[in-house]
């Protein structure tokens, strides 16, 4: 699964809460409709990104997981 994206953010190696904090900052810097590709290795990032998009209303277009690395595609909606 892959999506076109406008910005990439690598949070590899970072622990909670840094991936979410950096994601928030990156999405803030986007225009509405643009997509952020975020990479994380924190095992908690899958539930956390889901919770973050559910709460903030931004859209998780999809994610993929390969050998401990998670890649998320998040669309800014507002």
């Amino acid at each position: 699964m892959s999506f076109n994206f406008d910005q990439e953010l690598d949070c590899s190696g970072l622990s909670c809460p840094m991936p979410i904090l950096k994601t928030k900052k990156a999405v803030d810097s986007l225009e509405i409709g643009q997509v952020l590709k975020m990479i994380a290795t924190d095992a908690g990032s899958l539930p956390d990104v889901n919770a973050w998009t559910a709460k903030t209303g931004h859209e998780l277009l999809g994610h993929e997981e390969a050998s401990g690395t998670f890649t998320f595609y998040i669309k800014k909606t507002k």
């Binding site: 809460p17 904090l21 928030k24």
Partner: peptide, 8 residues
């Protein structure tokens, strides 16, 4: 606290 702000 920081996560809360990240969650609006």
């Amino acid at each position: 606290a920081t996560s809360a702000v990240a969650m609006d």
